[in-house]
Nucleic acid binder design. Structure first.
Lengths: 92, 92
DNA sequence: TTATAGTATTGACAAATATCTATCTGATGA
DNA sequence: TCATCAGATAGATATTTGTCAATACTATAA
């Protein structure tokens, strides 16, 4: 885990809508359509946000038939918080 | 610690310059002029960034004669990482 | 009071970005 | 093959924000 990766994750979390999505996903895996229900944004906007969350590694996407299920990548999250807390040793 | 406060902290950390400052301060308390030395920005820009870091609670400012010393507020940092990790119980 | 020095504020501007509409893609089922 | 549907991409726009130069503030020292 380096500062660049950390910065990317922090940028991903530093938007109100994406932080809301993050909170929703903390409760467990969710389909894109379910996430969309809880937010006042359009589908392309959600798609854009999910890409940012996935690209930085904080979220994982899993296609199941026609739906995409998203979940938090707990290892990435832990790497981020460890880095912030100064426990910069190894991993990810 | 609520999501709003968390969002403010994440926004504060989601800028490359401020994350560098954060890293510097993780090594210990620093004078503004020392921070400035390690960054290619002007003094007003640093002042602007320090205000953001202090306003969200992640950094503390301490005036000593004519110099201002900045440090990380470890309680605030822990509250942030706890919140991200889902340990949302109480405090700050 | 006046000069000096470290830090903060203001105002302007350019770059980044969150959002939308419109459209595309890819897979399924008739 | 064609229609349908979930999700992705493209292009445009408005807002946010990082930066600077200029200036103000505040405390000290002469």
């Amino acid at each position: 885990m380096d500062a660049d990766r950390c910065l990317k994750m922090l940028k991903a979390l530093s938007d109100e809508t994406r932080l809301k999505i993050f909170e929703m996903l903390k409760g467990g895996k969710l389909c894109a359509c379910k996430i969309l229900e809880g937010l006042n944004i359009t589908q392309p906007t959600l798609s854009h946000h999910m890409k940012i969350l996935c690209d930085c590694g904080l979220a994982d996407a899993e296609r199941d038939w026609k739906w995409t299920h998203y979940s938090i990548n707990k290892d990435a999250l832990k790497a981020l918080t460890d880095w912030l807390n100064g426990e910069n040793e190894g991993k990810i």
